[in-house]
Write a protein that binds this DNA or RNA. Structure first.
Length: 259
DNA sequence: ATGACTACGCCACGTAGA
């Protein structure tokens, strides 16, 4: 089973690119971020026509997450628990009912947090505390689960082209990295780092300043797995080639192959 | 270097992204 995460930076602007990628790579499950669309405006039909069940959690203009699956989805939950006043659409999860044991797939779009310090950074750190609480519950269940998405955190210096350029950024500040490591240290596996320790492995390149041709990227899209899911991990990769296409997202997909 | 992209939305230029 192949599960992928892709920050598409606008479903309306990116539909052709998304459909082409789905047809080529044929992930069994995909979580999407930055839909920037209300659910009622989401172009569901062309995606369903490719054989995907679809669950969205959108909002106007910003944010927005979705799960696509060739298998039936059950127990779909929208919104990260822990703050009933949080109106930003950044979390969706569901049970993927494949051939074997059900797999819980969580799709997340973690807040950017800039400028830091400030209220947006406070929101980011509070959101990460809630994420940790949800992860603790998933781990306590001792079931296969993956948390995939745009984490907006550069975990370590080797995950960015120029650490100095990012040292004051909310994506790389010590508080953000510490919160990410507290999450992983609960007992989750960073899928990409379990298959390679190569530096220069990125998932995002800014549109500005020729960041892509100069490979001035950062690794901020991650797949974290509970032990029961990590035991089934066969491979993990990044579809870097999509960044070379017409009208690309500034992110590229990351995927895992599981038994 | 007062630069720099792209998507969105009360459709014009401000906000947000990272």
């Amino acid at each position: 089973m192949k599960i992928a995460s892709f920050n598409i930076n606008g479903i309306k602007a990116r539909l052709p690119a998304l459909l082409a990628w789905l047809e080529e790579e044929r992930p069994d499950v995909a979580v999407l971020q930055e839909l920037k669309s209300l659910d009622e405006n989401f172009p569901a039909e062309p995606i369903q026509d490719l054989g995907y069940n679809l669950e969205t959690h959108g909002q106007k203009s910003f944010n927005g997450v979705a799960i696509l699956s060739r298998f039936p989805l059950e127990d779909v939950r929208r919104g990260l628990p822990g703050d009933d006043d949080d109106e930003q659409s950044r979390w969706i999860e569901a049970l993927v009912m494949g051939d074997g044991e059900p797999l819980r797939v969580c799709g997340l779009y973690l807040p950017n947090g800039n400028p830091a310090p400030g209220p947006k950074f406070d929101y980011k750190l509070a959101w990460m505390e809630r994420l940790k609480a949800r992860a603790e519950a998933l781990l306590a269940a001792e079931e296969p689960a993956i948390l995939a998405g745009d984490y907006n955190v550069i975990p370590q210096a080797e995950d960015c082209h120029d650490p100095k350029a990012w040292q004051d950024d909310a994506l790389f500040l010590p508080e953000s990295r510490a919160a990410f490591h507290r999450l992983v240290n609960l007992g989750l596996t960073d899928a990409l780092r379990s298959v390679t320790d190569a530096p220069g492995t990125y998932t995002f390149w800014d549109y500005q300043g020729s960041a892509w041709p100069r490979n001035k990227g950062i690794r901020i899209d991650h797949v974290l797995m509970t032990p029961q899911a990590a035991d089934r991990l066969e491979d993990c990769g990044i579809d870097t080639h999509l960044r070379d296409r017409e009208k690309p997202s500034d992110h590229v997909p990351i995927w895992v192959e599981m038994r």
